[in-house]
Every structure is written in C-alpha cells, then in structure tokens.
Design a binder for these strands. Structure first.
Length: 182
DNA sequence: CGCAAGATTATT
DNA sequence: ATAATCTTGCGA
C-alpha cells in the first residue's frame, strides 16, 4: 500500500516533450509545493499549452522579452507572470531548451479540500506561489510532480481568456472517472 | 516618454 | 459590465 510520501516524482526530462502532449498528460498528476511552514499536495485538473512562436496566444509570440524569455529555457523550469499585473500564474516550461513553450496550470484539486480551485490566479494564491518562484524547477526542491497519474476523463477545448489564437484547442480539463470524493 | 493591451478576478 | 493594477511593447 503506497504511502503518499513514497510517491516518486517526475524528472525534468519528462518536460522536454511536446507541450500539448504534456498539458494532456499532466491532468490527474499531483503537484506538491513545499515551504517552511507546510506541504501542500494537489491534483492537476486543468491545463493549457502555449507552444512556439507560431502560437499567437503565447507570450513567446507577442511578449517575448522580460520574464517570458524563460519560456525558451530548460524544460521543467517554472515561468510565473502576473496576469493583468495582479495575479501570479503558474506555468511549467516544456520542450528542449531554445523552444519557447509552456503549460499553464489553470485548475487543481487540493488534497482534503471539498471543491477544486479553478482559475490560474486563484490556485497560485491557494498554494502560496508568487512571482518569486519564477525560475525555480518543478522537478525538485520546493516543487514536484508525481509519476503516478489518477485516471481522469479528459476534455479538450479552446483556451480561456486569450484574445489571439482562439481557434487553437489546447486546453485540457479533467473529470474524475473514479467518482470523486463527496 | 506616454500609452494601450493583456494567458484574471472580485465586485457592482 | 467594470474596476483594480503593472509589465511589456510600440510609437512619438
């Protein structure tokens, strides 16, 4: 009987793959965030992929400078930007270094909580993630993602809130197949 | 240097 | 529907 603490975590190499594939594959995996005061574990239930400079909705396309330049960095790095200047949003850099892409985490279900936390600006607040986490790694240290993946039925739709590239269906939403809690 | 737009959310 | 709030990019 596997213990929570025994869960293995993904290596950075996992994130070197196609951003769209990874956005899909992250649904149902758990994200663990650690700080001096607590350890929070949450299941990823909603993601969006932003891939390459050809994707008009990607910051790598219309806002490539500044902190978004990290999207060209090594896979597994964490890219945080402030949406509308006030809400930090969590992204995981994907694809090999040099390829600008990332997966935005839009929804999670925190262990023990009755309802999921939806919205990129809300979940960062719930997890205590700030702009200071920009540049850290999601494969070790303060952040980690489980190798284990809970079965989910995954829906693919167009991305939320984007004003460009509205035709690109790179949003993934998970609905538990295991009859989620009560 | 000034200004408009944006991967959002809470409130009116 | 709209304000809150700030970084990036572009035009003067």
């Amino acid at each position: 009987m596997p213990n929570l603490a025994d869960s293995a975590t993904l290596e950075c190499g996992y994130f070197a793959g196609n951003a769209v594939d990874i956005a899909f594959d992250l649904i149902g995996r758990s994200l663990t965030v650690t700080d001096a005061h607590r350890v929070v574990r949450a299941t990823i239930v909603e993601t969006e992929a932003y891939r390459g400079t050809d994707d008009p909705a990607s910051h790598a396309a219309f806002r490539p400078g500044g902190r978004a330049s990290l999207m060209r960095g090594a896979p597994g790095l964490i890219y945080i930007y402030a949406a509308y200047g006030m809400y930090p949003c969590l992204n995981i850099v994907t694809e090999p270094e040099g390829e600008p892409s990332a997966v935005l985490i839009r929804g999670i279900h925190i262990d023990g909580e009755a309802t999921p936390v939806l919205g990129p600006g809300r979940l960062t607040r719930a997890l205590g993630i700030t702009l200071d986490d920009h540049g850290l790694s999601v494969c070790g240290g303060r952040f980690s993602v489980s190798t284990v993946r809970i079965p989910y039925e995954i829906d693919q739709t167009r991305r939320i809130g984007v004003t460009r590239g509205q035709d690109i269906p790179w949003r993934f939403v998970g609905a538990s197949v295991v009859g989620a809690a009560e």
